[in-house]
């Protein structure tokens, strides 16, 4: 009985784990199952393809998506600093989500956004201990 419970709880935790990241003053949760790695990237390793930033990582060309610019969030990030990219995968496509800070992994519960639930980039929001985090929908960003 105890063992069963342990296993069930574990599998639930795996599904609901998310990486909490910071972009400007906002918190963005990235579901762990979509994440491949987290990379610290030197600006000199970024190349341009079709006027968008990409990195070459382990045989893959991965486009970078700067979440602050994409979502219109003010960020005090300076140029020429190393950037943090969370590399995500959906089907065979990769994307590098550029964030400002990493807060760590947390077990989250996704709450619906009510009248805002038609927002295609977020699957919901999560209540953290002192804050709210928007849960990003990785397949929507890659598509």
């Amino acid at each position: 009985m105890d063992l069963c419970q342990l296993i069930t709880t574990n599998s639930e935790i795996d599904n609901n784990q998310a990486l909490i990241t910071g972009v400007g003053q906002e918190k963005i949760a990235i579901p762990v199952p979509s994440i491949i790695t987290i990379e610290n990237i030197n600006p000199s390793d970024i190349s341009l393809v079709d006027s968008s930033d990409v990195i070459y990582l382990r045989g893959h060309v991965i486009p970078l998506l700067y979440l602050d610019k994409f979502f219109g969030i003010e960020s005090d990030k300076k140029d020429n600093e190393n950037i943090t990219a969370v590399i995500c995968k959906h089907n065979d496509s990769h994307i590098g989500l550029v964030v400002d800070t990493l807060f760590g992994q947390e077990d989250i519960e996704s709450k619906p956004l009510g009248v805002l639930s038609n927002n295609r980039f977020f699957s919901g929001a999560s209540i953290l201990s002192d804050d709210l985090a928007m849960i990003i929908d990785v397949p929507a960003l890659i598509a």
Partner: peptide
């Protein structure tokens, strides 16, 4: 908490 890409008249969400 702001919701990016939401309609302009929405300020965001609260708990």
């Amino acid at each position: 908490t702001m919701v990016p890409k939401a309609p302009e008249c929405f300020k965001g969400i609260i708990n």
